[in-house]
């Protein structure tokens, strides 16, 4: 399996924050959702890949190329859409396309014009006259038009109203699933990530708390509730769960390793009326953020 992005022992320290990534790998052709609360380090991590944030320590490679030693080559392979538009406000989409095209060997102008049409962006209108969603779509078109092997999207839906967010996400889904490219997609809106990601990485206070295949993650995390009347077994039962609490004889717990054996074991320990409910990604993230139910 080819690795599109690899991060090893990456660290970056600020006065009140430290990004510390022991290891992160994104397989080629897959979409990874990077989630976490505001200030968790998602943007810093993405910017570090392009050397927009110089690291204190660590190594990053993109398709086997070192992000510092082969910086220009890496940037040829990467498309980066930032959280806030950094396009020249006085420029038009047509001019920006012409400007950016000179720096990419793989620039496809027909594809760019097609994307502008698809996103309904007027080619002669100035960037400052576009809506926030329009600027984001233009940014996306500019980055897709050189057909990058790795696409980095930093909170592409942040700050958009629900309608614009839905439209953008829909269009994003169409274009990123259209081709065999790897995508690292950060968002604090977990629902967006759940729709598109193959892998989910959860960042909290600069460190990776969880990094897993989305389907497996949703399969393994369950909310389980049941009644227990035998008070001598209570502690043993609670130890089977990652998080849990009793309310009288009623127990509610969260497990991150659910399998068919767990209900059997619980019954052996005296649990009754066992109900295991799957959790969505958002609930899992809330639990991880709070460190409990």
């Amino acid at each position: 399996m080819q690795i599109a992005l690899s991060m090893e022992n990456v660290s970056k320290e600020y006065p009140n924050f430290k990004l510390q990534i022991a290891s992160l790998k994104l397989p080629s052709g897959s979409i990874m959702g990077l989630v976490g609360p505001n200030g968790a380090g998602k943007s810093t991590l993405i910017k570090a890949i392009l050397n927009l944030v110089p690291l204190d320590t660590g190594r990053i490679t993109v398709l086997g190329r070192d992000h510092l030693k082969q910086e220009i080559e890496v940037k040829q392979l990467v498309g980066y859409v930032p959280e806030e538009s950094n396009l020249y406000e006085e420029a038009t989409p047509a001019w920006l396309g012409g400007f950016v095209a000179h720096y990419y060997a793989t620039w496809d102008d027909t594809y760019y014009r097609g994307l502008l049409e698809k996103f309904q962006i007027p080619v002669r209108r100035k960037v400052k006259q576009l809506s926030k969603g329009g600027k984001m779509k233009l940014s996306l078109a500019l980055q897709l038009a050189h057909r990058p092997d790795l696409l980095l999207l930093d909170e592409p839906t942040a700050g958009l109203d629900p309608l614009a967010r839905r439209d953008l996400l829909q269009e994003l889904l169409e274009v990123i699933q259209d081709e065999k490219r790897s995508v690292l997609f950060s968002s604090h809106i977990v629902g967006d990530v759940e729709k598109v990601a193959d892998y989910v990485t959860f960042l909290k206070e600069g460190s990776i708390v969880l990094c897993e295949d989305k389907e497996k993650l949703l399969e393994k995390w369950r909310q389980v509730q049941f009644k227990v009347f035998d008070s001598s077994r209570r502690e043993e039962i609670a130890n089977l769960f990652t998080y849990g609490k009793y309310c009288g004889n009623y127990f509610q717990g969260i497990t991150d390793h659910f399998d068919e054996e767990l209900p059997v074991r619980l019954k052996e320990l005296g649990a009754e009326n066992i109900q295991a409910v799957p959790l969505d990604l958002e609930k899992i993230m809330v639990i991880l953020s709070r460190g409990g139910i």
């Binding site: 927009l52 080559e73 930032p82 538009s85 950094n86 396009l87 020249y88 406000e89």
Partner: peptide, 18 residues
């Protein structure tokens, strides 16, 4: 000022440019 206002340096540094 134009670069500062548009965050142009971040844009230019994200391109394959030294």
């Amino acid at each position: 000022y134009n670069e500062e206002e548009n965050k142009g340096l971040a844009f230019l540094r994200s391109l394959p440019l030294s």
